[in-house]
């Protein structure tokens, strides 16, 4: 029990934010209306993705320093789960965009750049598949992973702030924080960040254990 406290914490937070996110009060805003509840599901996906990709880079660095096969497996599995989270983030975003901006794909900078960031990690997986020798594959893909990570950060966190975007907080649009994210929403949103990150980490540890059992 004492070892799995974080799993219980993560599940409790996600259950709380799902129920609370759908039932608790939210501010009434034009255009957004009830779709503002999607904030609790859309934004935490990006937090989960960033957490998982950071874990992946951490283990890639560790692989280069120690050449342990387990670290390579951890790096690739966290990328796999991170890609799932990023696709979920794109989907929740696309649905939200349909109801507020009018189209599923509104050619918003953040949508485009996230799609490119996903391409970056698909390229990582393609690179892995192109090399047969196990140790060589681990080493080269670890190097590409580390090399690509700063670019991913620039794509997702820096570039959208330089250009116009439909997202709040970019290109002259007021951020959620400034006027309409009241304390009721914060009480659900911040636990959701932590909860979904923990769930992502949990999925990744399970994936890693399955893969290492398969390899034995």
């Amino acid at each position: 029990m004492y070892k799995s406290w974080w799993k219980i914490l993560g599940s409790a937070l996600v259950i709380y934010t799902t129920i609370g996110g759908l039932l608790l009060g939210v501010p009434r805003l034009a255009i957004l209306n009830e779709t503002i509840r999607n904030l609790y599901f859309h934004v935490p996906m990006w937090f989960g993705m960033i957490t998982l990709f950071s874990i992946s880079v951490f283990y890639s660095i560790k692989y280069l320093l120690g050449a342990d096969d387990e670290d390579d497996l951890k790096a690739v599995e966290s990328v796999n789960v991170g890609i799932v989270f990023s696709i979920l983030g794109l989907l929740t975003g696309a649905i939200w965009a349909k109801f507020t901006w009018g189209q599923f794909w509104s050619f918003d900078v953040k949508q485009n750049f996230t799609a490119i960031a996903i391409l970056l990690y698909f390229a990582y997986l393609v690179l892995r598949n192109s090399i047969d020798e196990q140790q060589k594959r681990a080493k080269i893909s670890a190097i590409y992973n580390i090399f690509a990570f700063p670019m991913m950060v620039v794509l997702i966190m820096v570039l959208p702030r330089l250009s116009d975007s439909l997202h709040p907080g970019n290109g002259g649009n007021p951020g959620f924080n400034s006027y309409d994210l009241d304390s009721r929403m914060r009480a659900v949103l911040y636990p959701a960040f932590i909860g979904w990150s923990i769930i992502g980490y949990w999925i990744y540890t399970i994936r890693f254990r399955i893969r290492s059992l398969e390899n034995k």
Binding site: F113, I116, A117, L119, L120, A123, V126, L127, S130, I131, K136, I140, I143, Y144, F147, A148, M151, V154, L155, L159
Partner: peptide, 22 residues
Amino acid sequence: IAAKAGNGGMLMAILSFPLIIP
């Protein structure tokens, strides 16, 4: 990286395009 991975031209394009887009 592409040269070490073995199959040059194709891999070069796949690996570098997402990096060069930003």
